[in-house]
């Protein structure tokens, strides 16, 4: 089998992720693990967002909404459990294998409703509307004082995973990495399937796909829901990682940052969004350690990427036509 450039970089990226725990041991720093866990979680969001922005040409500026919904689904279940009013009177919601699919379901349901409305439009309307609906959910959680409002909601412990407590940062990292791997594999399969071909074909020429007999709206809505569910899973992981959620998870700034990640990495590539997520978090952690006003530096950087490198870092590296 011929090894493409993309293949080589994919292996390099995978090895880097696998090496993290050993690097942390060598450096004697748990921060490396924490940062890598965040990268893995953000990478899931970026992969899901690329399915919309990169592959389907649907610029969603509200992806943080589904991330936040996933996070809140986990936190609210935990909150009710801690206050002895478990949802439906059932304590099972503390089990990750139940809570996380629940988070995906909630996020997917949100994406279904928002997508059904937003996808009636296109172009700039779509950008503005996805942004506006995400902001609506943001305000909704700010207004829900019962669940902490502005101050957010803390989780006393992480979810159990198959009945086990996850106290060790490494174990949790492996779980997040496995989730990322599954999402990548799934997204790769989806994009080459019949379904994915419709999405990508419609991004290239919507008129053509309609004239061939594809009701494009339905396929896009399905993609919107799938991407929302993946982001919801990432939100659930994020809530577990920080043991805290707040409306900030749904803020428009975060939606913007997600877009930055995807574009910085390179649209429409498998590993690009992962690289973008890593680059974003590394830059953020470096700059914010240097100055409180790191956005003053990061803003112009984003601007330069948008103007001069619209294909992103990965786009500049990878071969043409690779998936």
């Amino acid at each position: 089998m011929k090894l493409t450039r993309t293949g080589v970089f994919t292996i390099v990226v995978a090895l880097a992720f696998l090496a993290v725990p050993y690097a942390a041991t060598l450096l004697g720093s748990n921060y490396v693990i924490t940062l890598a866990t965040r990268v893995a979680i953000y990478a899931i969001v970026a992969v899901s967002l690329d399915m919309l922005v990169g592959r389907s040409n649907l610029v969603s500026f509200g992806h943080a909404a589904y991330f936040g919904l996933g996070g809140y689904a986990v936190a609210i279940s935990a909150f009710h459990l801690a206050n002895d009013v478990p949802i439906f009177g059932w304590a099972g919601t503390n089990e990750a294998l139940i809570a996380w699919p629940l988070a995906m379901f909630v996020a997917g349901f949100g994406a279904l409703i928002i997508g059904a409305l937003s996808l009636r439009t296109a172009g700039v309307y779509f950008i503005m509307i996805t942004l506006a609906f995400a902001q609506m959910l943001f305000f909704l959680f700010v207004a829900l004082k019962y669940y902490g409002g502005d101050d957010g909601l803390s989780l006393s412990t992480r979810n159990l995973f198959a009945g086990n407590r996850i106290t060790d940062a490494r174990t949790f990292y492996w779980i997040c990495l496995a989730a990322l791997a599954i999402c990548l594999l799934l997204s790769w399969r989806i994009l080459n399937s019949r379904f994915g071909m419709v999405l990508r074909g419609a991004a290239a020429s919507e008129r053509r796909m309609a004239a061939l007999g594809f009701p494009v709206y339905r396929y896009r809505l399905a993609a919107f829901v799938i991407a929302g569910m993946m982001a919801g899973l990432a939100g659930a992981l994020w809530a577990n990682q920080n043991r805290f959620v707040s409306p900030d998870m749904l803020s428009w700034v975060r939606s913007g940052e997600f877009l930055v990640m995807v574009i910085m990495g390179g649209l429409s590539s498998l590993v690009g969004p992962v690289v973008g997520a890593a680059a974003f978090l590394l830059i953020e952690s470096y700059l914010s350690g240097w100055t409180e006003h790191w956005q003053m530096v990061f803003g112009p950087f984003v601007l330069l990427v948008a103007v001069f490198a619209p294909r992103g870092l990965w786009g500049a590296l990878r071969g043409k036509g690779d998936v």
Partner: peptide
């Protein structure tokens, strides 16, 4: 694409088309 359209719905997510 055209062949795919006439073969019915394309909600098939995993097999390499």
């Amino acid at each position: 694409f055209a062949v795919q359209a006439r073969q019915g719905h394309s909600f098939r997510f995993l097999a390499d088309s």
